[in-house]
């Protein structure tokens, strides 16, 4: 039977983030928390295939209690079961510690209900590292296919999947044995508009909470900040550069403004180079 596990993350909507000009800090107030868009598309793909083949979709997310809202959103998009992995000990995790915990969780889920495909979004829009998916695949010894743009076929009987993958200058069609881990591009599936019963179910849904004490068996020095080789040493706002000269078309006219640009030696030099 088809059983997909989808890893999701709640992120701030980074297109709306601003820097406070006085303190130089991130202004998080009023920035909505959303399900990482790539994860949402990955989940949509999992649900689409569940509906075609029959089966179940389990979502999981490692984070603070506020991530429950995204688990609910996942149920709304069609997942059957949602697990929130949350404990004090998990905080401060970098990608290595995160992949450890997620891999352990997926192992546990697999022991109860064999997993056919593990879905990840290609990257989270806050961290942008794209590391956790491949990291989990290494820990689970499951092949990974990144940048999936299309799932062509899933055959649970013969344990096979065929996907399309997008690289910078080629696309490829790959066949892999199940189980497999996919990291997905947005085009892998469209986000469905949930039915009313699915939406209502999600509003009433309480995620299962998996903590440090159980049901996974975790080594203390591999989770959270203890298990994170990388730490943030410091943060800074990007330096503000010196503004150059400003020409107003209102004042000098469009033709003159352009003339002034064309006169610049750097402009001339750049054009010459192209010839």
């Amino acid at each position: 039977m088809f059983h997909a596990v989808v890893a999701i993350k709640q992120v701030p909507d980074t297109t709306n983030i601003r820097i406070d000009s006085e303190t130089g800090n991130l202004v998080r107030a009023g920035v909505p928390a959303i399900m990482n868009p790539y994860d949402a598309h990955a989940l949509a793909a999992a649900v689409e295939w569940k509906r075609r083949l029959g089966g179940r979709v389990t979502i999981l997310s490692m984070g603070p209690p506020s991530f429950a809202a995204s688990i609910r959103e996942g149920i709304e998009l069609g997942a059957d079961r949602g697990i929130l992995i949350s404990a004090r000990q998990f905080s401060g995790a970098d990608t290595l510690a995160t992949s450890y915990v997620l891999a352990k969780a997926i192992e546990k889920i697999h022991s109860e209900e064999p997993v056919s495909v593990i879905f990840f979004g290609k990257q989270a829009i806050d961290g942008d590292t794209a590391q956790v998916g491949p990291g989990v695949s290494v820990r689970l010894d499951v092949p990974v296919i990144t940048y999936c743009s299309k799932i062509q076929q899933i055959d649970c009987e013969h344990n096979e999947i065929v996907v399309q993958r997008k690289a910078e200058n080629y696309t490829e069609t790959i066949r892999a044995a199940l189980p497999v881990l996919l990291t997905c591009e947005k085009e892998v599936s469209k986000i469905p508009f949930a039915s009313l019963p699915d939406l209502v179910r999600s509003l009433r849904y309480e995620p299962e909470i998996w903590g440090y004490e159980g049901p996974m068996e975790l080594e203390r020095d591999k989770v959270g900040s203890k298990g994170s080789p990388t730490i943030v040493f410091k943060t800074a706002t990007p330096p503000q550069s010196e503004a150059g000269e400003l020409i107003y078309c209102d004042a000098v006219g469009v033709a003159n403004a352009v003339k002034m640009v064309l006169k610049k030696s750097e402009f001339k030099a750049a054009i010459k180079l192209a010839e």
Binding site: L96, A130, Q131, P134, G135, V138, V144, A167, E168
Partner: peptide, 23 residues
């Protein structure tokens, strides 16, 4: 940090149980 590099780096870093800073 190309398409290929990003596919590879995270997997290698996890195999080596070491830290990777991206981009």
């Amino acid at each position: 940090a190309t398409n290929l590099g990003r596919d590879l780096a995270g997997a290698v870093a996890t195999s080596l149980e070491t830290g990777l800073t991206a981009d």
